[in-house]
Design a protein around this nucleic acid. Structure first.
Length: 467
RNA sequence: UCCUCAGUAGCUCAAUGGCAGAGCACUCGGCUGUUAACCGAGGGGUUACUGGUUCGAGUCCAGUCUGGGGAGCCA
């Protein structure tokens, strides 16, 4: 049968009237099997949908009734039967089985049970956890959110750019990097100075996994005007928190002829669009999260979608926070970076909605951010959201070559390492802006999941790459 | 990396320094409409690891490993 014509649990739930009193054929995995002497019930999940469908089977209709009764959770089966309405029951409809065929047995040492498991335990069986309700919902939403992001940018004529995963630059300035090499660790070639001789390495120079596609994206923004990247990113920092992973995905739009205000408008539109898209296209999953993961989830998301995001300068934010210094473990003063506790206070207590903090002191921000006229701050923006804190960081980029060079010099960076980045300013440069959105952080925010390890199929964190 | 909490049956958790326990899962049996079904019985343990204190350690002490939470770094 053609794949598109196959009956799935999702199709049945979406248009049950098409199937009532007709014979349907399904295949899937048993989530639950309970029975008495001459009949029983199977919860069948076929992978197409978050919800399962109930299959009723009777001794007098199945010649292999005795075997079906013994099937445990996780077994793979084929089912043929009639879809029947079940008014007044907990489930809207069920399949009265005519025939059940066993495809794959699932022995009794199967680690998943009908009862709730801790997320910590499920992380140790990352290959099996997608078969649970929570992870079924998380990874359907991950897929949908990914699609929504592409849809948002494509509808606005952005060009999707695949920036390199292996980079030749060791100076992107966004964190510790993983080395990429084919050198033999037991016999590393050295130069006369005793340093590693990377001219003997695969690329003839030192290479790393990317920590950001931004610099490459800028090059394409200055040709295509509106571009975005969406790809894997790697940081070898020894971060042991529920919000950090060594391998994660990042979205980085970059727009030429766009200033910081344009940048914020884009970020606000994007957040609202992708949240709204997921809520409308994954109603069952979102209801599950709202009921079992985070009771205030939908209310908070709807608040984000409907509110106009706040905007405040770093300097004004510091003034407000200083009045509440008693509440903070770390006291606020102008010139220091905002701590998570300060960010959350601003968005949760002061604004009670998402807020952009802009124009940070230049000394706590990256070299490529555009210097403001006051000479002290740069055109940076962080988007803070209730419940998490920072979810987006971005800026208008320094397009004035002499100011960029001065900054590179100030930070003791090497001008020649940035020769092509500087060319972008030299040849037809223009003001431009962009930001970075941590994809997993967005998933966490939209699902209510509180650990990044539970929104990545096989997460990589310090001392952990089992699967 | 720092601070902090934890590690007991397949899972989730009890056990005052004094006999190693429960629920679920699993196996067997019962049950004619179940909804994480229900009822009865049974099997299941190097208490993370190494060492120490003690007549006696799951429990106290030291170290190691692993995991959770907080912080830093950041997305």
């Amino acid at each position: 049968m053609k794949e598109a014509l196959k009956t799935t649990v999702k199709k049945i739930y979406r248009q049950p009237e098409e199937y009532y009193d007709k014979e349907v054929s399904l295949s899937g995995w048993i989530r639950n099997n309970r029975n008495s002497k001459v009949f029983g019930f199977i919860e069948l999940n076929d992978g197409s949908f978050f919800k399962s469908i109930q299959v009723v089977y009777e001794e007098e209709k199945l010649e292999n009734f005795k075997e079906i009764v013994k099937l445990g959770v996780g077994s793979a089966i084929y089912v043929d039967g009639i879809l029947t309405e079940t008014p007044g029951m907990k489930q809207p409809f069920e399949i009265k089985a005519k025939n059940i065929r066993i495809e794959g047995h699932c022995p009794s040492d199967y680690p998943l049970q009908k009862k709730r498991h801790s997320f910590e335990f499920l992380r140790t069986i990352a290959h099996l956890r997608p078969r649970t309700n929570t992870f079924s919902a998380v990874f359907r939403v991950r897929s949908l959110l990914s699609y929504a992001i592409h849809k948002f940018f494509q509808e606005r004529d952005f060009v999707y750019v695949h920036t390199p995963i292996i980079t030749g630059s060791d100076a992107e300035g966004a964190g510790e990097m993983f080395h990429v090499t084919t050198l033999d660790f037991r016999n590393i070639p050295l130069t006369e100075d005793g340093e590693v001789d990377f001219t003997k390495d695969f690329f003839g120079r030192e290479t790393n996994l990317t920590v950001s596609g931004q610099l490459s994206a800028e090059a394409y923004a200055l040709a295509f005007r509106k571009v975005y990247t969406f790809g894997p990113t790697f940081r070898s920092e020894n971060s042991n928190t529920p919000r950090h992973a060594a391998e994660f995905w990042m979205i980085e739009p970059e727009v030429a002829f766009a200033d910081l205000n344009d940048n914020m408008e884009l970020a606000e539109d994007m957040i609202k669009y992708i949240f709204d898209y997921v809520i409308r296209h994954a109603p069952e999953e979102m209801e599950f999260f709202n009921n079992f993961i985070d009771k205030g989830l939908l209310e908070r998301l709807n608040n984000v979608i409907q509110s106009e995001f706040g905007r405040i300068s770093y300097t004004d934010a510091v003034e407000i926070l200083k009045k509440h210094n008693d509440n903070f473990q770390y006291k606020v003063e102008w010139g220091t970076d905002l701590q998570t506790e300060h960010e959350r206070f601003l968005t949760e207590k002061v604004f009670k909605k998402p807020v952009f903090v802009i124009n940070y002191p230049k000394d706590i921000k990256a070299f490529y951010m555009r210097l403001n006229d006051d000479g002290k701050t740069v055109a940076a923006m962080d988007l803070l959201v209730p419940g998490i804190g920072e979810i987006i960081g971005g800026s208008q980029r320094e397009e004035r070559l002499e100011l960029l060079d001065a900054r590179i010099k100030e930070l003791n960076m090497k001008e020649e390492d940035y020769w092509w980045y500087r060319d972008l300013r030299k040849y037809g440069g223009t003001y431009h802006s962009g930001f970075g959105l941590g994809f997993e952080r967005a998933i966490m925010y939209i699902t209510g999941m509180t650990n990044i390890r539970d929104v990545i199929p096989f997460p990589r964190t310090p001392k952990s790459a089992e699967f």
